[in-house]
Write a protein that binds this DNA or RNA. Structure first.
Lengths: 208, 208
DNA sequence: TCGTTTTTTGACCAACCGGTCAATATCACG
DNA sequence: CGTGATATTGACCGGTTGGTCAAAAAACGA
C-alpha cells in the first residue's frame, strides 16, 4: 500500500510530521485560492516538499481537500455544541459570540476555507452540512426559541440570530484584508475593539 | 485595432450586446469559482459564444475580470454614498441597511464576486479599494462619529458599525447556500424575515 | 449590387495541470 | 554493519488552459 489512508493514525513519525505539514500548507493555499484555483505545485512549494511526495501521502488533490474539510467541521461546530441549555441565556449567547470571534482571530484560514466552500455552493460539503450542521442547528435553535418563550431573552428569530453571530464574527477573518485597510495605516489588532463592539451589539439585541 | 477597448462606449450594436453578454456570463462564473478557478471555456459556454470570440472583445481573461471589478465598485458604494449627513440618523442608517440587504437579494453574484476577491487578499482590488472605498468610508464614519457625539444615536464604533452592516447583509448573498439549507426544506425566501430581524437588531443597537 | 469592415471560428500552440512510475535515497532495526 | 521497509524524486504523460492566427462568414454602406 502506497498512500497513507488514515492520516489520524499514521504508522511512522515521518508520516505524522509530513501529513501535518501537507495539510497545513494545503490549508494556506486552498483558503486563499479555493479548490480549483489551488495547484499541487503551490501546496508542494508551501510545504517544502516535491509534488510526487505529496501524492505519496494523499492519493489525489481532492483527498487533501476532503481531509481538510472533514477535520474542519468538527472544529467549526464545537463552539455551538458548548452552548448550554441550562446556562444563563444571555451569558451563554455572549460566550458563544466570544468563542466564535476567538476562532476568527486564531484560525482565519479555517474560516476562509469554509467561506470559499460555501461561496462555491458547497459542492464538497453539502453532505456533511446536512448530516452534522443541520441537526445541531435545529437542536440549538429550539433551545433559543424556548429562551424567547420563557422571556429570558428579547424576541429574536433563532435561525437569523445564529446567522448574525456567524456573519459578524467570521467577517473579521474572511474580510481581514478590508478591515485592516479601513481601520487606518497602523496595523493595530482589530479584535479587542471588535469584541467590545459585538458584546455591546448582542447585549442590546438580547436584553432589549 | 482588434479588441474593444472601452466597453462602456462600444462602436456597434453587436459589440454592445456581446460585451454585455460576456460580462454577464463572466460574473456568473467568476463569482462562483474565483479568478483562478474560472476558465474561459466555462465563460464562453455560459455566454453561448466561442472562446476566440471572447478574446475578440477582451484581450485577456484578466481584462474581463478587471472590467467586472471596476464596474462593481461604483454599484457597491452607491448605497453608502446615499447616507445623508443631514437626515435623521437612525432612519438614515436603517435605510442604508435596507438598501444593502436589497442588493444582496437582487445582486448576489456581485456580492460573491466581491467576497471572492477580498478572500484572496484583494490582489486585483487593493488599488481601487484605497482610492475609492477608503475616502468614502473615512467621510461617512466621521458623520456617524458626529451623530454619536451629538447623542443622536447610541455609542458605537463607526468603523465596526459599518463592518456589521456589511457582514450581516452580504451574508444572505454569500452564504445563501447555507442559509437556505438551514431554514428548512421549503425553499421559502429568507429575505423578508431577514429584513425584520436586521431592522430590529439595528434599532436596538442604535437607540439603546 | 459589390466592396469594405466587422464578426466568428476551426485549427493550433506553448505552458501548466494533476497524476504515474521506476529508480534512488534514507530510515529503522536486528 | 546489512538488509528490508519506508520515503523521495526526476522524468514523463495525457488532458486542460489561456491565447494566437489566418481564413471564412456576416453585416454594413454606397
Amino acid at each position: 500500500m502506497v498512500h497513507v489512508m488514515n492520516p489520524s493514525e499514521p504508522k511512522t513519525r515521518i508520516q505524522r510530521k509530513n501529513t501535518q505539514t501537507i495539510l497545513d500548507a494545503a490549508l494556506e493555499v486552498f483558503s486563499r485560492q479555493g479548490f480549483r484555483g489551488a495547484t499541487l505545485d503551490q501546496i508542494a512549494a508551501e510545504a517544502g516538499l516535491s509534488k510526487p511526495n505529496l501524492l505519496y501521502y494523499f492519493p489525489t488533490k481532492e483527498a487533501i481537500h476532503v481531509t481538510l474539510l472533514s477535520q474542519l467541521i468538527d472544529i467549526w461546530l464545537e463552539p455551538l455544541r458548548q452552548l448550554d441549555p441550562e446556562g444563563e441565556p444571555v451569558e451563554e449567547l455572549l460566550s458563544y459570540v466570544r468563542r466564535k470571534l476567538e476562532m476568527s482571530r486564531d484560525m482565519p484560514r479555517e474560516s476562509r476555507l469554509f467561506a470559499n466552500e460555501i461561496l462555491q455552493g458547497a459542492p464538497r460539503l453539502s453532505g456533511t452540512l446536512g448530516e452534522a450542521l443541520k441537526p445541531l442547528v435545529d437542536q440549538k435553535t429550539a433551545v433559543i426559541s424556548q429562551w424567547v418563550k420563557d422571556g429570558k431573552i428579547a424576541e429574536v428569530h433563532p435561525h437569523h440570530l445564529l446567522f448574525s453571530i456567524w456573519s459578524l464574527t467570521q467577517h473579521y477573518a474572511d474580510f481581514d484584508t478590508q478591515v485592516r485597510m479601513l481601520l487606518g495605516g497602523d496595523n493595530a489588532d482589530p479584535f479587542p475593539e471588535a469584541e467590545r463592539h459585538l458584546t455591546a451589539l448582542f447585549t442590546r439585541l438580547l436584553t432589549e
